[in-house]
Design a protein around this nucleic acid. Structure first.
Length: 624
RNA sequence: GAAGGGGUAGCUCAAUCGGUAGAGCAACGGACUUUUAAUCCGUUGGUUCGGGGUUCGAUUCCCCGCCCCUUCACCA
């Protein structure tokens, strides 16, 4: 191993030197502690099983002190009451002399002062701890409760031992850790050093438990549906891909995707006769990372048969405001320095009226929408009407949605899984809940007509595909014939990006597939594609319904990036019609209300933190 | 993906015009029997994120790269 390596570098790092100091103390403790019956520096159960005693949390100790008299109970040697057992990490150490040492120790519930005093603790034990106890060591002590002369609640140790040695040098005892990178990558350090962070994650645990309790009390049942899926559905987001080694399709392992929502399987449960279901869990979206997005995040989706949007509104506002009240003591929270009201009822705000109010434009006014976008230096060219409306809404309206509210009556095109509004078929019977400019929940009266559902999914794909196919055609027209390599050789295959456009994917994009097929360049490509497919890609014969086309782009072509994006969209599995889902609907899904809540964002509000990373224990980071 | 800010001792942070890289905490040695980030005296600790360039000389100026933060873009 290190046989041939030269001796340790002349100047070991400071980190290494500090660690060696601590290791030396550990060895000394092990050696001398044995004689004193202290056990290993890597500890064991505390207090030991034979004693029949149990630990007392620091919170309980503080409660006990509240029942003592600060002026009278100051003599530890005469302290009444049983010995308490405390296990905690030593955060601070104040040596008064060789005979008296004050420690501040911390467990999950708080901090308390511990005194090691030669009149209470055996001299050799005190001496050994004095020499070997370091900041951030975890210790177990038994002791008596008494105030100091200055009135500080103190556990006066009658015995003490190291339960776990911290051999790494800890951070600054006062400043803690300011480096956000360390706080995220080594969350355990953050949890020890920053009480606020610990509070946030304890709060999160309580909030999640509170959500479950609330739903359980309402008669909802928590379901566990697959995280690994063959068609990721229920939202329009790019999924994470993986492969299943146990199953092969042709020569390839079967492709699978991490779920991007829990919607589809939960609705299948409604079909199955489970009438009030929910799932609180992690979902995964292969998209941007910023202060409000993490690739894996937590949602709770709730479905109730024979209910509708109105029920989901009540559920949402009651749940969120109750959580705030129970956990923070108020229905008004502070976020980014501003007070945010979560008290019920939340105002129901009309989407189009908000557009009128803040952007002075109607969703039907295409020119007006373009103008508003241009005012904000956004290019309306190439955007669908829905995207324009959504863009204007995002730019002009969202910032005004600070106190909790419901946005209702969105255009139906934006919501393919949602039933139309009972009074107006152009609107969706949907709400989005906004708080502090963030979308925290989204709910529908669920679409349960399978034929309508098929049409709506097809229309949505067609809409998304149109853009991609147009872009592809623009590319082909700009480079007549040039991109068709005669034969893929080992060299140019390395320089080549193959774009596969599955014919079946665009069969619903009426008119477009014909235009693609008729394009002369495409015809040539198709011919090549069939040859290459058989000769180089080894995926077996082309199936007629999935005729594939390939085109090649040389490395370094400035349009390569754009084409790669087209490829991603065109081969996006979330644009596959989920026949299994439609089949479920064909067996009859009860009319239902459905709701999804972004748990992380609710936590940001409750904890009053600015970044989603501050409510996720181990946020995604680039590997170092 | 773009712009801006940042990366210096184990931790928190300095470093003037480009001129020997400093402090506090931690660590080590010592004093001290009621402290509260204990205090006091002394000592040690550096690949200044990595690579290249300009220069007599680079933490500092230039180029390339890595990582973090913020804003924007993306994200039903």
């Amino acid at each position: 191993m290190e046989s041939s390596a030269p001796a340790a570098p002349a100047s070991a790092s400071s980190y290494e030197a500090l660690k060696q100091e601590r290791l030396a103390k550990l060895r000394r403790y092990e050696e001398e502690g044995k004689k004193l019956g202290l056990g290993s520096a890597w500890g064991s159960r505390f207090p030991d099983a034979a004693s029949g005693k149990t630990l007392t949390s620091i919170e309980r100790i503080r409660e006990a002190f509240a029942r003592l008299d600060k002026t009278k109970d100051t003599n530890p040697q005469a302290a009444a009451g049983e010995e308490v057992f405390v296990a905690a990490r030593m955060m601070l150490r104040r040596d008064q002399s060789k005979k008296l040492i004050f420690l501040t120790v911390q467990d999950q519930t708080g901090t308390v002062q511990v005194a090691l005093w030669n009149t209470m603790l055996k001299e050799p034990v005190l001496a050994l701890l004095r020499e070997t106890l370091d900041l951030w060591d975890i210790i177990g002590i038994s002791g008596k409760l008494a105030f100091t002369q200055k009135g500080e609640p103190t556990v006066w140790a009658t015995s003490a031992r190291i339960l776990s040695k911290c051999i790494a040098p800890p951070p600054d005892k006062h400043h803690g850790i300011h480096d956000k990178e360390i706080r995220y990558r080594q969350r355990y350090l953050d949890l020890i050093a920053e009480p606020q962070s610990r509070k946030t994650f304890i709060l999160r645990a309580k909030a999640v438990a509170g959500m479950r309790r609330y739903l359980d009390e309402q008669g909802f049942l928590e379901m566990e549906t697959p995280v690994l899926q063959t068609i990721p559905g229920g939202a329009a987001a790019r999924p994470f891909e993986t492969r299943l080694n146990a199953l092969r399709i042709g020569d390839d392992y079967m492709k699978m995707y991490m779920r991007i929502a829990t919607e589809i399987p939960l609705k299948k449960l409604l079909v199955g006769g489970l009438e009030k279901v929910y799932e609180l869990g992690r979902i995964f979206r292969n998209e941007g990372i910023d202060t409000r997005h993490n690739p894996e995040f937590t949602t709770v989706e709730i479905y109730q048969a024979y209910a509708d949007l109105r029920d989901m509104m009540l559920l949402t506002e009651n749940l969120v405001s109750k959580l705030a009240l129970d956990l923070t003591g108020s229905t008004t929270v502070t976020f980014r320095g501003k007070p945010i009201k979560l008290a019920t009822p939340w105002p129901r705000l009309d989407y189009c009226e908000l557009l009128k109010k803040y952007a002075d434009v109607s969703p039907d006014d295409s020119n007006g929408l373009d103008r508003r976008l241009l005012d904000k230096k956004m290019d309306p060219a190439g955007l669908s009407t829905v995207e324009k409306i959504d863009g204007v809404f995002g730019e002009y309206v969202e910032e005004h949605l600070q106190d909790a509210c419901f946005i209702i009556n969105q255009p139906i095109e934006m919501s393919p899984l949602c039933k139309a509004h009972p009074q107006n078929p152009r609107l969706a019977d949907r709400f989005e809940a906004f708080v502090a400019g963030m979308e925290i929940a989204n709910a529908y009266t669920e679409l349960n007509d399978p034929e309508e559902q098929r049409t709506r999914l097809s229309l949505q794909f067609k809409d998304l595909m149109r853009e991609d196919v147009e872009e592809l055609l623009r590319y082909l027209t700009s480079r007549p014939g040039e991109e068709v390599a005669e034969t893929p050789t080992p060299e140019n295959r390395a320089l080549v990006d193959v774009v596969a456009l599955a014919y079946g994917r665009i069969e619903h994009a009426q008119g477009l597939s014909a235009r693609v097929a008729q394009h002369p360049v495409f015809a040539a490509l198709k011919e090549k594609a069939v040859q290459w497919h058989g000769r180089f890609l080894h995926r077996g014969p082309l199936r007629p319904e999935t005729e594939a086309f390939f085109l090649t782009v040389k490395d370094g072509d400035p349009r390569l990036g754009k084409l790669k994006r087209v490829k991603e969209r065109v081969t996006d599995p979330s644009l596959t019609i989920d026949e299994d889902f439609l089949s479920a609907l064909e067996h009859g899904m009860p009319p239902a209300g459905g709701l999804g809540i972004g748990v992380d964002r609710v936590m940001m509000l409750l904890a009053g933190v600015d970044s989603i990373r501050d409510v996720i224990l181990f946020p995604l980071m680039r590997p170092e």
